[in-house]
Design a protein around this nucleic acid. Structure first.
Lengths: 228, 228
DNA sequence: CGCTAATTTGATCAGACTCAAGTGAAGTGG
DNA sequence: CCACTTCACTTGAGTCTGATCAAATTAGCG
Protein backbone atom coordinates (compact mmCIF):
# COMPACT_ATOMS: atom_id res chain seq x y z
CA UNK A 1 0.00 0.00 0.00
CA UNK A 2 2.55 2.54 -1.08
CA UNK A 3 1.21 6.01 -1.11
CA UNK A 4 1.99 7.99 -4.18
CA UNK A 5 3.94 10.31 -2.01
CA UNK A 6 6.08 7.60 -0.60
CA UNK A 7 6.51 5.97 -3.93
CA UNK A 8 8.13 9.10 -5.21
CA UNK A 9 10.52 9.44 -2.31
CA UNK A 10 10.32 6.38 -0.16
CA UNK A 11 13.17 7.25 2.07
CA UNK A 12 12.50 10.94 2.64
CA UNK A 13 10.34 12.07 5.51
CA UNK A 14 6.70 12.86 4.93
CA UNK A 15 6.19 16.49 4.10
CA UNK A 16 4.42 17.09 7.32
CA UNK A 17 7.18 18.23 9.49
CA UNK A 18 7.80 21.82 8.63
CA UNK A 19 4.84 23.35 10.36
CA UNK A 20 6.83 24.54 13.28
CA UNK A 21 7.72 27.86 11.82
CA UNK A 22 9.77 29.38 14.60
CA UNK A 23 12.09 26.47 14.52
CA UNK A 24 12.16 26.42 10.76
CA UNK A 25 13.35 29.95 10.67
CA UNK A 26 16.25 28.99 12.82
CA UNK A 27 17.54 26.34 10.51
CA UNK A 28 16.28 27.14 7.04
CA UNK A 29 16.51 30.17 4.85
CA UNK A 30 13.04 31.60 5.01
CA UNK A 31 13.17 33.55 1.77
CA UNK A 32 14.21 30.50 -0.15
CA UNK A 33 11.29 28.50 1.13
CA UNK A 34 8.16 30.54 1.79
CA UNK A 35 6.40 29.37 4.91
CA UNK A 36 2.92 28.95 3.53
CA UNK A 37 0.03 31.08 2.42
CA UNK A 38 -2.69 32.43 4.65
CA UNK A 39 -6.30 32.11 3.51
CA UNK A 40 -9.62 33.28 4.88
CA UNK A 41 -12.80 31.29 4.59
CA UNK A 42 -16.40 32.29 5.31
CA UNK A 43 -18.80 30.15 7.31
CA UNK A 44 -19.52 26.84 5.56
CA UNK A 45 -17.04 27.55 2.80
CA UNK A 46 -15.24 24.52 1.44
CA UNK A 47 -11.50 24.36 1.97
CA UNK A 48 -11.08 21.13 0.07
CA UNK A 49 -13.39 18.35 -1.05
CA UNK A 50 -13.21 14.59 -0.77
CA UNK A 51 -11.25 13.41 -3.77
CA UNK A 52 -9.37 16.66 -4.27
CA UNK A 53 -5.70 16.42 -4.92
CA UNK A 54 -3.92 16.76 -1.60
CA UNK A 55 -1.32 19.34 -2.49
CA UNK A 56 -1.32 21.10 0.88
CA UNK A 57 -1.29 20.49 4.57
CA UNK A 58 -3.17 23.03 6.65
CA UNK A 59 -3.00 24.64 10.04
CA UNK A 60 -5.81 26.60 11.66
CA UNK A 61 -4.89 30.13 12.69
CA UNK A 62 -8.30 31.24 13.90
CA UNK A 63 -11.82 29.87 13.83
CA UNK A 64 -12.81 26.24 13.54
CA UNK A 65 -12.65 23.74 10.67
CA UNK A 66 -14.58 20.50 10.35
CA UNK A 67 -13.36 17.52 8.35
CA UNK A 68 -16.00 15.04 7.28
CA UNK A 69 -16.86 12.09 5.10
CA UNK A 70 -20.11 11.41 3.29
CA UNK A 71 -22.01 8.31 2.30
CA UNK A 72 -23.65 8.29 -1.10
CA UNK A 73 -27.06 9.07 0.35
CA UNK A 74 -25.82 12.11 2.24
CA UNK A 75 -25.23 10.69 5.68
CA UNK A 76 -22.27 12.53 7.12
CA UNK A 77 -19.63 11.77 9.71
CA UNK A 78 -17.55 14.65 11.02
CA UNK A 79 -14.34 13.03 12.10
CA UNK A 80 -12.95 16.08 13.86
CA UNK A 81 -13.25 19.75 14.65
CA UNK A 82 -9.95 21.55 14.25
CA UNK A 83 -9.31 24.54 16.51
CA UNK A 84 -6.61 27.19 16.31
CA UNK A 85 -3.20 25.55 16.11
CA UNK A 86 -4.53 22.23 14.90
CA UNK A 87 -3.19 20.62 11.77
CA UNK A 88 -5.49 18.98 9.24
CA UNK A 89 -5.41 17.69 5.70
CA UNK A 90 -2.76 15.07 6.32
CA UNK A 91 -3.18 12.25 3.82
CA UNK A 92 -1.31 9.05 3.22
CA UNK A 93 -2.31 9.23 -0.40
CA UNK A 94 -2.17 12.15 -2.80
CA UNK A 95 -5.93 12.49 -2.60
CA UNK A 96 -8.05 13.90 0.20
CA UNK A 97 -10.21 11.22 1.74
CA UNK A 98 -12.49 13.65 3.52
CA UNK A 99 -13.68 17.18 2.94
CA UNK A 100 -12.84 20.24 5.01
CA UNK A 101 -15.13 23.20 5.59
CA UNK A 102 -15.12 26.32 7.72
CA UNK A 103 -17.45 25.95 10.70
CA UNK A 104 -17.45 29.74 11.08
CA UNK A 105 -15.30 32.41 9.52
CA UNK A 106 -11.72 31.32 9.87
CA UNK A 107 -8.16 31.78 8.69
CA UNK A 108 -5.76 29.00 7.90
CA UNK A 109 -2.24 28.52 6.57
CA UNK A 110 -1.65 26.20 3.66
CA UNK A 111 1.72 24.52 3.28
CA UNK A 112 2.61 22.99 -0.03
CA UNK A 113 3.50 19.39 0.54
CA UNK A 114 6.23 18.76 -1.97
CA UNK A 115 8.05 21.89 -0.91
CA UNK A 116 7.90 20.90 2.70
CA UNK A 117 9.37 17.55 1.80
CA UNK A 118 12.54 19.28 0.78
CA UNK A 119 12.48 21.34 3.91
CA UNK A 120 12.17 18.37 6.10
CA UNK A 121 15.28 16.85 4.68
CA UNK A 122 17.09 20.02 5.67
CA UNK A 123 15.59 20.21 9.12
CA UNK A 124 14.87 16.73 10.42
CA UNK A 125 14.42 17.93 13.96
CA UNK A 126 11.16 19.56 12.99
CA UNK A 127 9.74 16.08 12.50
CA UNK A 128 9.07 15.80 16.18
CA UNK A 129 6.66 18.71 16.16
CA UNK A 130 4.76 17.51 13.17
CA UNK A 131 4.51 14.05 14.58
CA UNK A 132 3.08 15.49 17.76
CA UNK A 133 0.31 17.14 15.79
CA UNK A 134 -0.49 13.98 13.96
CA UNK A 135 -0.45 11.93 17.12
CA UNK A 136 -3.06 14.22 18.62
CA UNK A 137 -5.27 13.46 15.63
CA UNK A 138 -4.69 9.76 15.97
CA UNK A 139 -5.36 9.65 19.70
CA UNK A 140 -8.50 11.68 19.15
CA UNK A 141 -9.68 9.37 16.37
CA UNK A 142 -9.06 6.26 18.44
CA UNK A 143 -10.95 7.63 21.41
CA UNK A 144 -13.70 8.73 19.08
CA UNK A 145 -14.17 5.20 17.78
CA UNK A 146 -14.85 4.04 21.32
CA UNK A 147 -17.38 6.85 21.67
CA UNK A 148 -19.14 6.12 18.39
CA UNK A 149 -19.22 2.39 18.82
CA UNK A 150 -20.00 1.98 22.48
CA UNK A 151 -21.29 5.10 24.23
CA UNK A 152 -24.88 6.21 24.82
CA UNK A 153 -26.20 9.54 23.63
CA UNK A 154 -25.79 11.15 27.04
CA UNK A 155 -22.27 9.80 27.40
CA UNK A 156 -21.38 11.07 23.95
CA UNK A 157 -22.54 14.57 24.80
CA UNK A 158 -20.74 14.52 28.14
CA UNK A 159 -17.51 13.45 26.48
CA UNK A 160 -17.92 16.06 23.80
CA UNK A 161 -18.49 18.90 26.26
CA UNK A 162 -15.52 17.95 28.40
CA UNK A 163 -13.29 17.63 25.37
CA UNK A 164 -14.30 20.96 23.91
CA UNK A 165 -13.86 22.70 27.26
CA UNK A 166 -10.47 21.11 27.59
CA UNK A 167 -9.34 22.18 24.15
CA UNK A 168 -10.49 25.78 24.47
CA UNK A 169 -10.35 27.81 27.65
CA UNK A 170 -10.47 24.88 29.98
CA UNK A 171 -12.86 26.98 32.04
CA UNK A 172 -16.42 26.08 32.92
CA UNK A 173 -17.99 28.47 30.42
CA UNK A 174 -17.96 26.88 27.03
CA UNK A 175 -18.72 28.54 23.71
CA UNK A 176 -19.66 26.04 21.05
CA UNK A 177 -18.72 27.31 17.62
CA UNK A 178 -20.68 24.66 15.74
CA UNK A 179 -24.34 23.91 15.11
CA UNK A 180 -26.39 21.07 16.57
CA UNK A 181 -26.23 19.45 13.14
CA UNK A 182 -22.44 19.47 13.27
CA UNK A 183 -22.43 18.07 16.78
CA UNK A 184 -24.87 15.36 15.75
CA UNK A 185 -22.80 14.38 12.73
CA UNK A 186 -19.71 14.29 14.90
CA UNK A 187 -21.24 12.08 17.58
CA UNK A 188 -23.27 9.78 15.36
CA UNK A 189 -26.61 11.13 16.57
CA UNK A 190 -29.47 13.26 15.22
CA UNK A 191 -29.93 16.92 16.06
CA UNK A 192 -33.05 16.09 18.06
CA UNK A 193 -31.18 13.64 20.24
CA UNK A 194 -28.36 16.15 20.74
CA UNK A 195 -30.87 18.78 21.78
CA UNK A 196 -32.71 16.44 24.11
CA UNK A 197 -29.46 15.34 25.72
CA UNK A 198 -28.50 18.94 26.40
CA UNK A 199 -31.90 19.54 27.93
CA UNK A 200 -31.61 16.44 30.06
CA UNK A 201 -28.19 17.42 31.36
CA UNK A 202 -29.57 20.85 32.18
CA UNK A 203 -32.55 19.41 34.03
CA UNK A 204 -30.13 17.32 36.07
CA UNK A 205 -28.22 20.47 36.96
CA UNK A 206 -25.05 19.22 35.32
CA UNK A 207 -24.90 21.99 32.75
CA UNK A 208 -26.63 25.31 32.16
CA UNK A 209 -27.56 26.58 28.70
CA UNK A 210 -27.08 30.33 28.69
CA UNK A 211 -27.89 30.23 25.00
CA UNK A 212 -27.93 27.41 22.48
CA UNK A 213 -24.24 27.83 21.81
CA UNK A 214 -23.07 28.87 25.27
CA UNK A 215 -22.91 26.28 28.01
CA UNK A 216 -21.81 26.37 31.62
CA UNK A 217 -20.42 23.11 32.92
CA UNK A 218 -21.77 23.22 36.47
CA UNK A 219 -20.74 19.73 37.45
CA UNK A 220 -17.66 18.51 35.68
CA UNK A 221 -17.26 15.61 38.07
CA UNK A 222 -20.63 14.24 37.04
CA UNK A 223 -19.78 14.78 33.38
CA UNK A 224 -16.59 12.81 33.88
CA UNK A 225 -18.51 10.04 35.54
CA UNK A 226 -20.85 9.89 32.54
CA UNK A 227 -17.72 9.72 30.45
CA UNK A 228 -17.12 6.20 31.77
CA UNK B 1 -10.57 3.37 2.07
CA UNK B 2 -8.60 2.30 5.03
CA UNK B 3 -10.66 1.46 8.01
CA UNK B 4 -9.57 -1.52 9.89
CA UNK B 5 -12.17 -3.05 7.72
CA UNK B 6 -11.08 -1.65 4.47
CA UNK B 7 -7.35 -1.52 4.70
CA UNK B 8 -5.68 -3.32 1.87
CA UNK B 9 -3.53 -6.25 2.68
CA UNK B 10 0.01 -5.09 3.28
CA UNK B 11 1.25 -6.44 -0.01
CA UNK B 12 3.82 -3.71 -0.41
CA UNK B 13 5.35 -3.48 3.02
CA UNK B 14 6.10 0.03 4.13
CA UNK B 15 9.41 0.10 5.90
CA UNK B 16 8.63 1.01 9.47
CA UNK B 17 11.23 2.33 11.72
CA UNK B 18 12.44 -0.69 13.58
CA UNK B 19 12.03 -2.90 10.57
CA UNK B 20 14.70 -1.21 8.63
CA UNK B 21 17.55 -2.60 10.60
CA UNK B 22 20.40 -2.02 8.18
CA UNK B 23 19.73 1.65 8.12
CA UNK B 24 19.24 1.85 11.84
CA UNK B 25 22.55 0.16 12.41
CA UNK B 26 24.27 2.89 10.53
CA UNK B 27 23.12 5.64 12.82
CA UNK B 28 22.30 4.00 16.11
CA UNK B 29 24.30 1.85 18.44
CA UNK B 30 23.59 -1.68 17.32
CA UNK B 31 23.41 -3.13 20.79
CA UNK B 32 20.81 -0.55 21.66
CA UNK B 33 18.67 -1.59 18.71
CA UNK B 34 18.70 -5.35 18.49
CA UNK B 35 16.87 -7.20 15.76
CA UNK B 36 13.28 -8.14 16.38
CA UNK B 37 12.43 -11.17 18.44
CA UNK B 38 9.77 -13.66 17.43
CA UNK B 39 7.06 -14.58 19.91
CA UNK B 40 4.16 -17.00 19.85
CA UNK B 41 0.86 -16.33 21.51
CA UNK B 42 -2.05 -18.65 22.17
CA UNK B 43 -5.64 -17.75 21.44
CA UNK B 44 -6.82 -14.81 23.58
CA UNK B 45 -3.40 -14.31 25.08
CA UNK B 46 -2.50 -10.73 25.89
CA UNK B 47 0.38 -9.18 23.96
CA UNK B 48 0.24 -5.89 25.79
CA UNK B 49 -2.33 -4.10 27.93
CA UNK B 50 -3.68 -0.59 27.88
CA UNK B 51 -1.32 1.52 29.91
CA UNK B 52 1.65 -0.77 29.42
CA UNK B 53 4.93 0.85 28.61
CA UNK B 54 5.28 0.91 24.83
CA UNK B 55 8.78 -0.39 24.36
CA UNK B 56 8.16 -2.30 21.15
CA UNK B 57 6.59 -2.07 17.76
CA UNK B 58 5.07 -5.30 16.49
CA UNK B 59 4.50 -7.02 13.19
CA UNK B 60 2.19 -9.96 12.65
CA UNK B 61 3.88 -12.98 11.08
CA UNK B 62 0.94 -15.36 11.21
CA UNK B 63 -2.48 -15.36 12.76
CA UNK B 64 -4.54 -12.33 13.70
CA UNK B 65 -4.22 -9.75 16.47
CA UNK B 66 -6.94 -7.45 17.79
CA UNK B 67 -6.30 -4.08 19.42
CA UNK B 68 -9.05 -2.72 21.64
CA UNK B 69 -10.09 -0.19 24.24
CA UNK B 70 -12.40 -0.72 27.19
CA UNK B 71 -14.84 1.44 29.11
CA UNK B 72 -14.90 1.08 32.88
CA UNK B 73 -18.00 -1.10 32.79
CA UNK B 74 -16.49 -3.52 30.31
CA UNK B 75 -17.90 -2.29 27.04
CA UNK B 76 -15.26 -2.90 24.41
CA UNK B 77 -14.33 -1.36 21.08
CA UNK B 78 -11.97 -3.30 18.84
CA UNK B 79 -10.26 -0.68 16.79
CA UNK B 80 -8.62 -3.03 14.31
CA UNK B 81 -7.77 -6.58 13.39
CA UNK B 82 -4.18 -6.96 12.30
CA UNK B 83 -3.41 -9.68 9.75
CA UNK B 84 -0.09 -11.14 8.68
CA UNK B 85 2.26 -8.37 7.63
CA UNK B 86 0.42 -5.64 9.53
CA UNK B 87 2.20 -3.43 11.99
CA UNK B 88 0.63 -2.58 15.32
CA UNK B 89 1.56 -1.10 18.66
CA UNK B 90 2.93 2.13 17.24
CA UNK B 91 2.62 4.79 19.89
CA UNK B 92 4.07 8.24 19.90
CA UNK B 93 3.63 8.29 23.60
CA UNK B 94 5.55 5.88 25.77
CA UNK B 95 2.35 4.22 26.88
CA UNK B 96 0.00 1.91 24.97
CA UNK B 97 -3.43 3.39 24.58
CA UNK B 98 -4.79 0.02 23.51
CA UNK B 99 -4.58 -3.53 24.56
CA UNK B 100 -3.50 -6.16 22.04
CA UNK B 101 -4.53 -9.80 22.14
CA UNK B 102 -4.17 -12.83 19.93
CA UNK B 103 -7.42 -13.63 18.12
CA UNK B 104 -6.16 -17.14 17.47
CA UNK B 105 -2.75 -18.71 17.88
CA UNK B 106 -0.28 -16.39 16.23
CA UNK B 107 3.34 -15.41 15.89
CA UNK B 108 4.63 -11.86 15.91
CA UNK B 109 7.93 -10.03 15.79
CA UNK B 110 8.67 -7.43 18.41
CA UNK B 111 11.09 -4.66 17.55
CA UNK B 112 12.50 -2.62 20.34
CA UNK B 113 12.04 1.05 19.70
CA UNK B 114 13.40 4.14 21.30
CA UNK B 115 11.26 7.03 22.22
CA UNK B 116 10.07 8.65 19.04
CA UNK B 117 11.69 11.95 19.84
CA UNK B 118 15.05 10.29 20.26
CA UNK B 119 14.65 8.33 17.10
CA UNK B 120 13.69 11.40 15.18
CA UNK B 121 16.78 13.21 16.25
CA UNK B 122 19.07 10.30 15.48
CA UNK B 123 17.53 8.98 12.31
CA UNK B 124 15.02 11.13 10.49
CA UNK B 125 14.42 8.51 7.86
CA UNK B 126 13.35 6.06 10.50
CA UNK B 127 11.00 8.67 11.87
CA UNK B 128 9.51 8.97 8.42
CA UNK B 129 8.63 5.32 8.35
CA UNK B 130 7.09 5.56 11.77
CA UNK B 131 5.11 8.52 10.56
CA UNK B 132 3.88 6.54 7.58
CA UNK B 133 2.58 3.86 9.89
CA UNK B 134 0.76 6.41 11.96
CA UNK B 135 -0.79 8.04 8.93
CA UNK B 136 -2.16 4.69 7.86
CA UNK B 137 -3.66 4.13 11.30
CA UNK B 138 -5.23 7.58 11.11
CA UNK B 139 -6.77 7.04 7.70
CA UNK B 140 -8.06 3.67 8.82
CA UNK B 141 -9.59 5.16 11.94
CA UNK B 142 -11.28 7.89 9.94
CA UNK B 143 -13.01 5.39 7.69
CA UNK B 144 -14.05 3.30 10.64
CA UNK B 145 -15.61 6.33 12.30
CA UNK B 146 -17.93 6.72 9.33
CA UNK B 147 -18.96 3.11 9.70
CA UNK B 148 -19.50 3.32 13.45
CA UNK B 149 -21.31 6.61 13.38
CA UNK B 150 -23.48 6.36 10.33
CA UNK B 151 -23.94 2.86 8.96
CA UNK B 152 -26.72 0.39 9.71
CA UNK B 153 -26.04 -3.09 11.03
CA UNK B 154 -26.40 -4.65 7.59
CA UNK B 155 -24.11 -2.05 6.01
CA UNK B 156 -21.52 -2.59 8.71
CA UNK B 157 -21.48 -6.32 8.09
CA UNK B 158 -21.29 -5.81 4.33
CA UNK B 159 -18.36 -3.44 4.71
CA UNK B 160 -16.65 -5.82 7.09
CA UNK B 161 -17.00 -8.83 4.81
CA UNK B 162 -15.73 -6.98 1.76
CA UNK B 163 -12.77 -5.63 3.66
CA UNK B 164 -11.80 -8.96 5.14
CA UNK B 165 -12.07 -10.63 1.75
CA UNK B 166 -9.97 -7.88 0.26
CA UNK B 167 -7.30 -8.15 2.92
CA UNK B 168 -6.99 -11.92 2.76
CA UNK B 169 -7.32 -13.95 -0.38
CA UNK B 170 -9.46 -11.51 -2.24
CA UNK B 171 -11.44 -14.52 -3.37
CA UNK B 172 -15.12 -15.14 -2.75
CA UNK B 173 -14.52 -17.75 -0.05
CA UNK B 174 -13.79 -16.02 3.19
CA UNK B 175 -12.50 -17.56 6.40
CA UNK B 176 -13.22 -15.43 9.41
CA UNK B 177 -10.59 -15.93 12.08
CA UNK B 178 -12.53 -14.11 14.81
CA UNK B 179 -15.63 -14.82 16.87
CA UNK B 180 -19.01 -13.12 16.57
CA UNK B 181 -18.19 -11.30 19.78
CA UNK B 182 -15.06 -9.83 18.23
CA UNK B 183 -16.93 -8.80 15.10
CA UNK B 184 -19.63 -7.19 17.23
CA UNK B 185 -17.12 -5.25 19.30
CA UNK B 186 -15.40 -4.09 16.15
CA UNK B 187 -18.57 -2.90 14.45
CA UNK B 188 -20.34 -1.44 17.46
CA UNK B 189 -23.04 -4.11 17.51
CA UNK B 190 -24.11 -7.05 19.68
CA UNK B 191 -23.39 -10.65 18.77
CA UNK B 192 -27.09 -11.27 18.22
CA UNK B 193 -27.32 -8.47 15.69
CA UNK B 194 -24.19 -9.71 13.93
CA UNK B 195 -25.64 -13.19 13.73
CA UNK B 196 -29.02 -11.97 12.49
CA UNK B 197 -27.35 -9.81 9.85
CA UNK B 198 -25.40 -12.80 8.56
CA UNK B 199 -28.60 -14.79 8.41
CA UNK B 200 -30.42 -12.00 6.61
CA UNK B 201 -27.66 -11.67 4.01
CA UNK B 202 -27.80 -15.41 3.50
CA UNK B 203 -31.59 -15.41 3.09
CA UNK B 204 -31.16 -12.70 0.45
CA UNK B 205 -28.69 -14.91 -1.40
CA UNK B 206 -25.89 -12.40 -1.00
CA UNK B 207 -23.69 -14.69 1.05
CA UNK B 208 -23.64 -18.33 1.98
CA UNK B 209 -22.58 -19.60 5.40
CA UNK B 210 -20.71 -22.86 4.89
CA UNK B 211 -20.01 -22.81 8.60
CA UNK B 212 -20.14 -20.04 11.17
CA UNK B 213 -16.64 -18.92 10.32
CA UNK B 214 -16.59 -19.70 6.60
CA UNK B 215 -18.54 -17.49 4.25
CA UNK B 216 -18.99 -17.41 0.50
CA UNK B 217 -19.60 -13.98 -0.95
CA UNK B 218 -22.07 -14.87 -3.70
CA UNK B 219 -22.93 -11.34 -4.69
CA UNK B 220 -20.13 -8.89 -4.13
CA UNK B 221 -21.85 -6.25 -6.23
CA UNK B 222 -24.79 -6.23 -3.86
CA UNK B 223 -22.45 -6.11 -0.86
CA UNK B 224 -20.75 -3.10 -2.38
CA UNK B 225 -24.07 -1.43 -2.93
CA UNK B 226 -24.91 -1.98 0.73
CA UNK B 227 -21.56 -0.47 1.47
CA UNK B 228 -22.98 2.91 0.36
C1' DC C 1 -39.31 44.71 12.95
C1' DG C 2 -40.10 40.86 10.28
C1' DC C 3 -38.24 36.97 8.01
C1' DT C 4 -35.55 32.88 7.97
C1' DA C 5 -32.89 29.45 10.03
C1' DA C 6 -31.73 27.05 14.17
C1' DT C 7 -33.19 24.87 18.09
C1' DT C 8 -36.38 22.71 21.13
C1' DT C 9 -40.17 19.86 22.17
C1' DG C 10 -43.70 16.33 21.31
C1' DA C 11 -45.56 11.95 19.42
C1' DT C 12 -44.70 7.91 17.22
C1' DC C 13 -41.82 4.44 15.06
C1' DA C 14 -38.12 1.25 14.21
C1' DG C 15 -33.67 -0.78 14.52
C1' DA C 16 -30.88 -2.69 17.58
C1' DC C 17 -30.52 -4.40 22.36
C1' DT C 18 -31.68 -7.50 26.17
C1' DC C 19 -33.14 -11.59 27.97
C1' DA C 20 -33.96 -16.26 27.16
C1' DA C 21 -34.04 -20.59 24.94
C1' DG C 22 -32.50 -23.71 21.57
C1' DT C 23 -29.07 -25.70 18.29
C1' DG C 24 -24.80 -27.24 16.83
C1' DA C 25 -19.92 -28.04 16.84
C1' DA C 26 -15.67 -29.04 19.27
C1' DG C 27 -13.34 -31.03 22.76
C1' DT C 28 -12.96 -34.28 27.00
C1' DG C 29 -12.86 -38.24 29.38
C1' DG C 30 -14.58 -42.73 30.33
C1' DC D 1 -15.62 -44.54 19.96
C1' DC D 2 -19.25 -42.60 22.14
C1' DA D 3 -21.66 -40.02 25.98
C1' DC D 4 -21.00 -35.71 28.13
C1' DT D 5 -19.66 -31.16 28.75
C1' DT D 6 -18.75 -26.78 27.08
C1' DC D 7 -18.64 -23.08 24.23
C1' DA D 8 -20.12 -20.54 20.12
C1' DC D 9 -23.66 -19.41 17.46
C1' DT D 10 -28.55 -18.87 16.14
C1' DT D 11 -33.22 -17.79 16.88
C1' DG D 12 -37.24 -15.85 19.26
C1' DA D 13 -39.91 -12.45 22.10
C1' DG D 14 -40.26 -8.29 24.15
C1' DT D 15 -38.13 -3.76 25.35
C1' DC D 16 -35.84 0.50 24.84
C1' DT D 17 -32.90 3.96 23.00
C1' DG D 18 -32.55 6.89 19.60
C1' DA D 19 -34.61 7.99 14.87
C1' DT D 20 -38.28 9.99 12.32
C1' DC D 21 -41.98 13.00 11.50
C1' DA D 22 -44.20 17.15 12.87
C1' DA D 23 -44.91 21.39 15.20
C1' DA D 24 -43.75 25.14 18.21
C1' DT D 25 -40.42 28.33 19.82
C1' DT D 26 -36.37 31.02 19.75
C1' DA D 27 -32.51 33.34 17.84
C1' DG D 28 -30.09 35.64 14.40
C1' DC D 29 -29.87 38.85 10.79
C1' DG D 30 -31.02 42.00 7.06
Amino acid sequence: MHTALLAKAPTSPLPLVALDLPRLRKSVDVTAVPAGTVHSYAKDEEIFAEGDRAAFVYKVLSGVVRTSKLLSDGRRQIDAFHLAGDIFGIEADDEHRFCAEAVGDCTIVAYRRNRLATLTAIDPEAATDMTAGMVRSLVRAQNHMLLLGRKSALEKIATFLLDMADRTSGSNILDLPMSRTDIADHLGLTIETVSRSFTQLERQGIIELISARRVILCNKAELKRLNS
